[in-house]
Structures are given as structure tokens and as C-alpha cells.
């Protein structure tokens, strides 16, 4: 019964999709919003990467909400799993020396790569979210390679708070400047294509990168639980 019902639901959905998609040609997108951003994005925000100018320039408030959702999920996961520490996983065997040394050697290189990705977010593909995920994967490597290393809780909390505060305070600073509003770009835009350009966008992306990296590391940390 359950199988038949599920298959019927999926079949109806597939039929609807086929009916609708026959009239949507592939590659013929003609969104006026998109072409407006492509034509004016570089002059309006100073970022050479138009996706970055949409994420942090035109839709900066939306990104603030997204960062908040990520923060709430990380905190909620921690609160959810702290109470269940009784069934902590069994004791792990120690990693071999090759694994430990290799992971410790690779860790700073991965951090450097993540920092490169989010510092150049307004010039090249990438940005705070991708760079933060790369930093978190570096921490994952260290967790797997040498089991005793842990992220210091105080460090994590202060980086997270600092990242969020930088974002909100830069947004509020836009309110005080004449002719600007919340999260608007009040610093000089500079020449598009140079590292120091696009006003507040690189600063916010660095803050987001650190914050996302620490939060995703915290997610991994609380899922791993207390390993003795």
C-alpha cells in the first residue's frame, strides 16, 4: 500500500514536471534582473565577481540572515548532543605516526588555501562560505589524523562572535554615513580587479569565512562527541 501510494505520488509529480518543462527552453534565460546586475554590478559595488556583488552587495541583508541560520543550527546541534553524551563512542585506537605527521604538515597549507579563497572572494570564484568550508575540512583532517587535537572552545567562541559582530557593526556604520543605509557600501570602491577594492565586501567576506569555518568545525566537533 505504502509502496503503491509513493509510486503514484512520484508518477504524478514526474508527469507534471514533463508537462511544464516542455515549454521552457534550455539556455534561453532572459531575466531582466540578472542582466541588470551583470551590466551595473561592477560599477555599483566594485567587485569583479558578480556573484559576490549579488551575495554581499545587493542581497547583503539576506546573507546576514543566512549566517544567522547557520549559527543557530550549530548552536542547536551542540545543545542537542551535549545531553546525550552518555552513549559516547568507544575508545579509538591511536593513529600511526605517518598519518599524524602528514596531517600536521598538510593542515597549515589547507588553512592558507582557505584564507586565499575568502580573501580573493570579490575577484575570483570563491568567497567566505567556500573558504570557511575548506578551513573546516582542514580541521577534519587534523581530527582524523591526530586524535588528541581539539579546537579550543574559547578561541572558537571569540572568532565566531568577532565575525558576527564585524558583519553587524559594518552594516550599522553604513547607517551613520550620509546617503547610505544598512549594509550599504560606504567605503571607497577603488579600481575593480585590485585586491583592495569593493569597499566593505572583502572585510565582510573575511569575517564570514572565519565564522563559517569555526561554525562548521564546531558542527563536526559536536557530532564526533566526547572521545576519551
Amino acid at each position: 500500500m505504502r509502496v503503491l501510494l509513493s509510486l503514484a505520488v512520484v508518477a504524478v509529480l514526474a508527469a507534471g514536471i514533463v508537462t511544464v518543462l516542455r515549454d521552457v527552453p534550455f539556455g534561453g534565460n532572459s531575466s531582466r534582473l540578472g542582466s541588470h546586475f551583470v551590466e551595473n554590478g561592477r560599477e555599483d559595488t566594485g567587485a569583479a565577481n558578480i556573484v559576490t556583488s549579488v551575495v554581499l552587495g545587493y542581497r547583503g541583508f539576506d546573507t546576514l540572515g543566512e549566517v544567522t541560520v547557520l549559527f543557530v543550527a550549530a548552536v542547536g546541534l551542540g545543545a542537542l548532543l551535549v545531553a546525550g553524551e552518555k552513549n559516547a563512542p568507544r575508545k579509538l585506537e591511536k593513529a600511526s605516526m605517518v598519518l599524524t605527521t602528514g596531517s600536521r604538515f598538510l593542515f597549515p597549507l589547507i588553512l592558507l588555501f582557505g584564507a586565499y579563497i575568502f580573501i580573493h572572494g570579490h575577484l575570483t570564484p570563491g568567497g567566505g562560505f567556500q573558504g570557511g568550508a575548506i578551513i573546516a575540512s582542514g580541521y577534519l583532517l587534523v581530527y582524523l589524523g591526530s586524535r588528541d587535537r581539539r579546537l579550543g572552545k574559547n578561541w572558537a567562541a571569540s572568532i565566531e562572535t568577532g565575525g558576527g559582530l564585524t558583519f553587524v557593526l559594518l552594516g550599522l556604520a553604513g547607517l551613520t554615513a550620509a546617503g547610505h543605509w544598512f549594509l550599504s557600501n560606504f567605503l571607497p570602491l577603488g579600481v575593480p580587479g585590485q585586491l583592495l577594492s569593493a569597499g566593505i565586501i572583502p572585510i565582510i567576506y573575511v569575517a564570514i569565512g572565519l565564522k563559517v569555518g569555526v561554525e562548521l568545525t564546531g558542527v563536526i566537533d559536536s557530532l564526533m562527541g566526547g572521545t576519551e
Binding site: Q130, A133, S137, L216, V219
Partner: peptide, 21 residues
């Protein structure tokens, strides 16, 4: 390319690691 980078680092690496844990 932005989305490809995010999907490769988050969807393929981090999500797999979280699921395995």
C-alpha cells in the same frame, strides 16, 4: 564556478564526513 566550489567543498567533502561520523 562559485557554486561548483561550494558543492565540492561542502556537499562532497563535509557532508560525507558528517554522515560517516
Amino acid at each position: 564556478p562559485d557554486v561548483a566550489m561550494a558543492e565540492a567543498s561542502i556537499g562532497a567533502a563535509l557532508l560525507t564526513a558528517i554522515l560517516i561520523i
